[in-house]
Design a protein around this nucleic acid. Structure first.
Lengths: 207, 207
DNA sequence: TAGGTTTCTGACTGTTCAGTCCATAACGGT
DNA sequence: ACCGTTATGGACTGAACAGTCAGAAACCTA
């Protein structure tokens, strides 16, 4: 009955996310988004309500992806919980690939958590961005804490440790590697930091 | 012989740093800097070579402040080293006050490490900023590692632990709290993260 | 194949931006 | 008191910006 849109909204949001990651929010113009996505200005405004709308929807998509990926990577039987935590930590400090249909980020600073990067840049003056970033953190914290509890049940982590505190600490470390990575440190160094953190996890006292 | 400048360069750089912290680099205009510092555009360009020059010199000043403060807070006799590390960690996760003559940052995101914030926003496309931020990190890493070594000599930290690895990890945690703080988490939560990290430091095995 | 509806494209507008420039002001030496 | 020198502040410029809009195009139904 009417002309269908000729683009895939997910692809567009991924491409826009990549642009925001690379140049920051204030560093990307609508023309940049237009060039990165192939959409004209009119389409961008009609479909996403302009630059800020694109950001919010891109962050919402990122949140949805996190909510799928993190529980999948961390949930499972108690026996493998500690190893899943280990693998997740090592993978997270090197940044997560964006999507199969969009080229990877060129710089480690662009591979940082999208929500974290936007929150640091404009979260102070944009409460919606701040809230979305906090949501991303919460979903991760829940998944990690659940995995810690599983490892505790399996006797791999000290049962006296608070799983929520530990989850917050681990996620804080992962966020910290985003920053350290942006300084230009090598992937090997980030791996080393992650391994040090993992080695310090409180093991159960055997008697 | 000639007209003397009527402003204090350090005050101007502090005020500009505050503005950059609050709005980010791309989010602050030269007029914003002009308003924050009281200087006209001509003076800004003559003394600091424009927006980018102001940033570089503000970061250099920040680096110099770090190079003074961190060693002073962390150096000292071996007996108190662990407690100095503890105090430094707790203070760092709440952000450092800027300067006595400039109002404090209004938001936790603006209290994050100045170098880290700029590196995440524009470090990927500005190698000078990236290098300066890395310098800031290095001077802190050295000071923290020295303090860890002192604590090891005093028998408060496992002598088998690598002090440099531990220093990197602790600084990564501090940088991570900058991000988590930007999400809007309470100071109490940040304190809790810092205490959890401190509690996990490897203590010497007594036999 | 014609009509109705929505998307698409790119030109347009007013604003804001970074950077330059110049007339004026403030000083120290003579 | 004068003069050379440097700082100051604001006007100016061309470019880039976000957002709007109207005409052309594509599609489905009938």
């Amino acid at each position: 009955m009417a002309r269908p849109r000729s683009f895939d909204p997910d692809y567009v949001l991924h491409a826009a996310e990549r642009q925001f990651r690379t140049s920051g929010y204030n560093g990307t113009s609508v023309d940049d988004i237009s060039a990165a996505t192939g959409l004209g200005r009119g389409s961008l405004y009609a479909a996403f309500d302009g630059k800020h709308g694109v950001l919010l929807q891109a962050m919402a998509g990122y949140f949805a992806r996190l909510g799928q990926f993190a529980p999948k990577a961390l949930a499972g039987p108690d026996e493998g919980a500690l190893e899943r935590l280990h693998a997740y930590l090592l993978r997270a400090v090197h940044g997560v690939p964006l999507a199969a249909d969009v080229p990877p980020a060129p710089d480690r600073a662009a591979a940082a958590c999208f929500a974290a990067k936007m929150a640091l840049e404009i979260g102070a003056s944009d409460s919606e961005v701040k809230r979305l970033a906090n949501d991303c953190f919460s979903v991760l914290a829940t998944a990690v804490a659940d995995c810690v509890r599983a490892a505790q049940r399996n006797g791999d982590i000290d049962p006296d440790a608070d799983p929520d505190d530990l989850a917050y600490l681990l996620l804080t470390i992962i966020r910290g590697t985003d920053v350290v990575g942006a300084y230009g440190h090598s992937p090997a160094r980030l791996t080393s930091i992650a391994e040090s953190a993992f080695a310090l996890l409180p093991r159960p006292r055997h008697h």
